[in-house]
């Protein structure tokens, strides 16, 4: 069982460095990731239903940027944005990066994070619930999804990518694989 003091914050030094990172490569990778997710997890979008037309601001509050997710079936995108340039969104989900990743990996309970104020939601609550429930059902492993971006090389890259993900995750205090979440 966790409580708010157990959720690590992204290191301030790392966040300061990321302040100067170019966002375009992250946005390109994000768009590719969402398209791959659609292909690999069609039931995620079936579960989203009409809420797939909404735009979500996924806001890791310990990072200097946020992610603008548009899970539109025909033109999905995951754009990395500075908060001041986030534009219009229907729903915002904010919290430490580790909490958001823990939700994706199904290790944290969204309602409990909301009760403890580790998670903040704004805007269209119906869209937030649909996204939360759809992701929770998919048993997503972020490292596996990122490896899938490599296409035919996925199987060759899986084991090294998992080791690199664990290493990078441990540097920054966040779990990038479901396995690491369980051992956190």
């Amino acid at each position: 069982m966790w409580n708010s003091k157990d959720i690590p914050l992204f290191p301030a030094v790392g966040a300061a460095v990321l302040r100067f990172a170019p966002l375009t490569p992250l946005s390109l990778a994000g768009a590719h990731l969402v398209k791959t997710l659609i292909r690999r997890h069609p039931s995620l979008f079936a579960r989203l239903g009409e809420q797939a037309d909404k735009t979500f601001l996924i806001d890791p509050t310990d990072l200097p940027f946020a992610f603008r997710l548009a899970p539109h079936v025909d033109a999905p995108s995951l754009e990395t944005v500075r908060r001041e340039d986030a534009g219009a969104w229907d729903a915002r989900i904010g919290g430490p990066l580790a909490a958001l990743l823990g939700l994706v990996h199904g290790v944290y309970d969204g309602d409990a994070l909301f009760f403890s104020r580790d998670l903040v939601i704004e805007g269209d609550t119906e869209a937030v619930l649909a996204l939360r429930n759809a992701i929770d059902n998919e048993e997503i492993d972020l490292a596996t999804e990122l490896t899938a971006l490599l296409g035919p090389l996925e199987h060759l890259a899986a084991a090294p990518a998992r080791r690199v993900s664990s290493l990078v995750g441990s540097w920054f205090g966040v779990a990038l694989t479901r396995e690491d979440e369980r051992h956190a």
């Binding site: 069982m1 939700l103 199904g106 309970d109 409990a112 929770d136």
Partner: peptide, 8 residues
């Protein structure tokens, strides 16, 4: 609730 809640 989530599957995390269910499991716990």
């Amino acid at each position: 609730r989530s599957r995390s809640y269910t499991e716990s």
